[in-house]
Write a protein that binds this DNA or RNA. Structure first.
Length: 378
DNA sequence: GATGCGTGGTG
DNA sequence: TCACCAAGCAT
């Protein structure tokens, strides 16, 4: 007679067999064939990739992973790196608290652990930027620990296998327990990676390829309902619109006036052009008063940018400031960044958009195929 | 437990 | 076009 335990073990065996044949080759991975010979990946690579992959696609991460590995080949190198250089290298990847915590974590590993990553879930979770998921993932993948790895992919797979009606995030503890029951003592790292690969390539959010799934014989959602409707999720709130203005000051050599944002909060520690606060409404006259210089500010259109929890519309103003102009000295802690080094700064995407609106060629782009302003009805 | 925190790809 | 989403964490 089939017990629950043997069913879970069967599923794990099927999943791992599938992973052996269909695993993705990724820059931070070693193949399951290598793992079978007892070779483990570099924990530094696994940790770095896992942090980058938090809420971020594999496609976006690949180039950043290679860049970081080239710049800082070891956790020790990253620990002694200049934080500003780390922020520059991270620019564009988003969720910038990850970069700040990445640096802190590297420093903690160097200082408190002699440059060697802890090999247990608890030890890992005590480090900055490492939560439930990342601790379990690094423990399983890098150290072959039997930890229950639960990410968005696994949530989807598990919720469908068991047709879990409880919506997320409330269902997480139940899902974690189901993953723990399913995780094998043998090859837990490959099991975890296999579950995530399955979720990414077969058990996808839309139109899952159930006919190709190694677990389709025991999937409750497939056999009793519509798998695509899992996992159930709590309704999400709508995004408010915020408005603001940004000021792009350019000098006669093409240098742009920049400043550094506060270390915490939105885009914390990143570089920006001066601007107003971003609020639900804005008055055109007072917005100019937020400019860094009294200058001939010219409106040059607007840009929009969508953040996680609000949409931003920025009116962009530009002004030419003479190289020798006395109004360059404002007393605030900004600086003039030469045109040639602008692209390498720690500028988040929204700021690059604002600068590009004022200076279309700022980042070496071809002359903007300037979107036609929507014609107002006659 | 709810909220704040980016960005680019996709159908 | 736009809603949704992608290997979450900190507070």
């Amino acid at each position: 007679m089939m017990t629950m335990t043997s069913t879970a073990a069967d599923a794990a065996a099927l999943l791992i067999a599938w992973y052996d044949r269909h695993h993705r080759d990724l820059p931070w991975r070693i193949s399951p064939a290598m793992a079978a010979r007892g070779v483990r990946p570099d924990p530094y690579h696994i940790w770095l990739s896992e942090v980058m992959l938090q809420q971020t696609t594999v496609q976006a991460v690949k180039a950043y992973f290679e860049k970081f590995r080239g710049l800082w080949p070891t956790v020790g190198a990253l620990a002694t790196a200049d934080t500003e250089e780390v922020m520059k290298a991270w620019a564009g990847l988003g969720y910038y608290a990850r970069a700040r915590n990445l640096k802190k974590c590297a420093e903690a590993v160097a200082r408190d652990h002699q440059g060697v990553f802890p090999d247990t879930e608890d030890g890992l979770k005590a480090l900055p930027g490492i939560g439930d998921y990342t601790a379990a993932a690094v423990a399983a993948i890098a150290f072959n620990r039997q930890s229950a790895v639960l990410d968005g992919n696994v949530e989807r797979v598990i919720s469908r296998l068991n047709a879990i009606e409880t919506p997320l995030p409330g269902a997480k503890p139940q899902m974690r327990a189901l993953v723990a029951a399913m995780t094998p003592k043998d090859r837990p790292g490959d099991f975890a990676q296999g579950m995530m690969d399955l979720g990414a390539t077969i058990c996808t959010p839309k139109r899952p390829a159930c006919s190709l799934c190694p677990l389709n014989g025991q999937c409750l959602a497939l056999n009793t309902a519509d798998p695509e409707t899992f996992p159930r999720k709590a309704a999400k709130k709508d995004k408010p619109l915020r408005l603001g203005a940004a000021f792009v000051a350019v000098d006669t050599d093409g240098a742009v006036y920049l400043r550094k944002r506060a270390e915490t909060g939105l885009l914390g520690g990143m570089t920006e052009v001066p601007g107003t606060v971003w609020t639900s409404r804005i008055d055109g006259d007072t917005s100019i008063e937020a400019s860094p210089f009294a200058a001939d500010w010219q409106p040059c259109g607007a840009i929009t940018h969508v953040f996680t929890h609000f949409e931003l519309r920025l009116s962009v103003y530009s002004a030419i400031i003479a190289r020798a102009s006395p109004i360059r000295n404002t007393g605030e802690n900004g600086w003039w960044e030469p045109a040639e080094t602008l692209a390498g700064q720690a500028l988040p995407t929204v700021m690059k958009k604002a600068i590009a609106q004022a200076i279309p060629q700022a980042f070496g782009l071809p002359e903007a195929p300037k979107k036609q302003m929507r014609k107002t009805r006659a």
